[in-house]
């Protein structure tokens, strides 16, 4: 049985876990740049989502709290 995967290959040979990293994927400069850009976009989108939830909560709660006597 041949398993082309670093950790599983070593485990199959009875040599313990693979610490050599030689079978791991090394991202190219372009792939790293693209991943970084996607990560930033996801962070910004999640940040915007949090802000929207916060503002809507203020508007919804505010309109109920404002008329209440102190």
């Amino acid at each position: 049985m041949t398993i082309v995967s670093g950790t599983m290959n070593r485990a199959a040979d009875g040599q313990g876990p693979d610490n050599s990293f030689k079978n791991r994927i090394k991202l190219t400069e372009q792939q790293l740049r693209a991943r970084r850009a996607r990560s930033i976009a996801i962070a910004l989108a999640l940040g915007a989502f949090v802000v929207v939830i916060f503002l809507v909560t203020l508007v919804r709660l505010g309109s109920n709290i404002a008329p209440r006597p102190m």
């Binding site: 994927i25 850009a37 996607r38």
Partner: peptide
Amino acid sequence: LIVTRAEPSVAGV
């Protein structure tokens, strides 16, 4: 059993 990996994405925003 060949375990293939998908090529990491180069898709930008």
